[in-house]
Amino acid sequence: MTTTIQASARPGLAGRARVSAVHGFPALLSLVALVVIFGISVVNQPGILSVSGLTLMLMSAVPLVFAAQAQMLIMSVGDIDLGIGALIGLVTVIAATLLAESPLLGWGLLVAIVGVYALLGLIVQKRGVPSIIITLGMSFVWIGLGLQILPTPGGATPDWLTAIGRWRPDSVPAPLVFIVVATLIGWYLARQSRIGSRMRALGSSAPTLQKAGWSLAGTRVTAYVLAAVLIVVSGLLLASQTRSGDINSASNFTLMTIAAVILGGGTFSGGRALPIGATLGAVTLGLITVLLSLMSLSSSLQSAAQGIIVLAVLAGRIITERFTR
């Protein structure tokens, strides 16, 4: 070989940091929004700057963060899950009834949910059914099942689940631990693992993935299965906080998770997955509720405020992208 090979073909730390900053840039405005909301909240109620204060403030964001990571996985292959909220509600119902009464049946149902998701992925890939249609259809199935098992909110979660919800370490806010764990799982699955890069390749350009010799169906099914597991975890955590089951407890999660992924730099067309961005987006949306109650605004304004913040962040991103180009 006539050419001399450079000693290090791999880029150094500085180059790595620069590229990460460029790629993670879309999530930056979500971080700005989060800091602003947090700042306003602290000014209104300095008491939240304590372990117990932060715990109360972040608690509602925990199931949402897990659900947002699940939605991020589905969106990375170019699909959208419109049944996520109903399914989380169903998981809380199962957790508050069957999981306590007959654990075997309860766990069996949760595993069956994951199996159904594998089937959904297969149908979307093989039959070309749009994911929004099939998941929207499934959301009605989930609601029907939930109402059948538990027509009115109630039930009681098993002791171990309640214990998870009661866990309150003194040194760190417990929700922060869960949020970090969720982000790490999402980060490993979507960005660090080989299957993660295949999932993003599927969303980015399916023919390329096929030319490289990978199964498109296998990749999509894996994405759906991983998402289903995260959705089940999200539902269990929600049940551990409420200690009861309610099919409608997470109905607003569907659109909130999509908004969180988009806020965090994801795209509808697939190919991108930014786990940290999705977490920031989910926490931002969760905190808006807390902030509005701190400012003693009507809770009916909550959705409007969330919508305005999503629009502001997205508009801000378009403007900043124009300036940086």
């Binding site: 693992s193 080989r194 890069s197 295949r198 993003r200 390749a201 969303g203 980015s204 350009s205 023919p207 390329t208 993935l209 030319k211 490289a212 010799g213 990978w214 697939g270 190919g271 991108r272």
Partner: peptide, 23 residues
């Protein structure tokens, strides 16, 4: 060109590299 626009250069190369790699 059979490259995924959203993946990095290294990830694209890994997609089509048939050699086994560790987790």
């Amino acid at each position: 060109l059979a490259l995924c626009d959203d993946l990095t250069v290294a990830e694209n190369a890994a997609l089509s590299d048939p050699r086994p790699t560790g987790l």
